[in-house]
């Protein structure tokens, strides 16, 4: 069963990682969900698919009052990212869903109505959470054509969606990357195939290199921290992407 791990805390400002579900059915890709809690509000990043909603909800509720959820950040439109939207709205109908303007009329197929969605323009935006300013950073074509990552300048955490994702073996349940060179082997095939644009990749690497990042938290696999963050950016910058087979 999924559990929420606190990966950052500074007084009333917390990041929770709901990661690594060993009990989920094997045919569903493992996902990480992140919750940014600040003051009286919380933002859920990539809440996941319908099938894992009970596990995510209960993990979140164990660490944080779910009625404090003010919004959902959907990095892009995939079902493993946001197909649980209708369920979160069932629990809290006034939730806002921040996503690329590109998906504003697609995501209602998963749930929600006109007033649910807050479209993010291509250049990104600031998302306010009880006084905290989070930045939606453009990551278009990595892999989705309308794609954003979320940067928290206070916690120095970058939620990087599918960038940094690794499809780890079932027996590897580490929350953080332990050995970069061993870990990155599980990320290589994924990035080569899923990331389709070399130009978009270079843009992203330049953009995030300018940010102060202590932790890069992806939607699949383990969290990069400390020097592994820059290691990952360098590795990604050098990687040939848009490759059908290695």
């Amino acid at each position: 069963m999924k559990q929420a791990h606190c990966i950052y805390q500074d007084e009333e400002h917390r990041w929770l990682a709901i990661a690594r579900d060993a009990t989920k059915p094997g045919y569903i890709i493992d996902t990480n969900e992140y919750v940014v809690v600040h003051g009286d509000e919380a933002l859920l990043c990539d809440p996941g698919g319908i099938e894992i909603f009970p596990a995510v909800f209960s993990a979140l509720s164990a660490e944080c009052d779910p009625t404090r959820l003010a919004g959902i950040f959907a990095s892009h439109q995939d079902p493993d990212i946001i197909s649980s939207l209708a369920l979160w709205l069932e629990f809290k109908p006034d939730l806002k869903c921040y996503t690329s303007w590109l998906w504003q009329s697609f995501l209602p197929h998963f749930g929600g109505h006109d007033s649910t969605f807050v479209p993010i323009p291509d250049q990104g935006t600031t998302i306010r959470l009880d006084g905290l300013e989070l930045q939606a950073i453009p990551a278009h074509y990595l892999h989705s054509s309308g794609n954003f990552h979320l940067y928290d300048p206070k916690a120095k955490i970058l939620f990087s969606g599918d960038v940094g994702a690794a499809l780890l073996p079932a027996d590897n349940n580490d929350l953080y990357v332990q050995d970069f060179s061993r870990h990155i082997r599980h990320a290589e095939g994924f990035h080569k195939r899923w990331m389709g644009s070399d130009r978009a990749k270079r843009d992203w690497c330049e953009r995030v290199s300018r940010l102060e990042i202590d932790m890069l938290v992806p939607q699949h696999g383990a969290i990069y921290q400390g020097a592994d963050v820059q290691r990952f950016i360098n590795w990604f910058a050098a990687l040939e992407v848009g490759v059908l087979r290695s």
């Binding site: 069963m1 909800f57 209960s58 009625t67 209708a86 069932e90």
Partner: peptide
């Protein structure tokens, strides 16, 4: 379907989940 999954989530979350 939504009600069934939400009920499962609330059951997993134990007693007294706000909301």
């Amino acid at each position: 379907r939504i009600a069934r999954i939400l009920a499962e989530a609330l059951k997993l979350s134990g007693e007294g989940v706000p909301g």
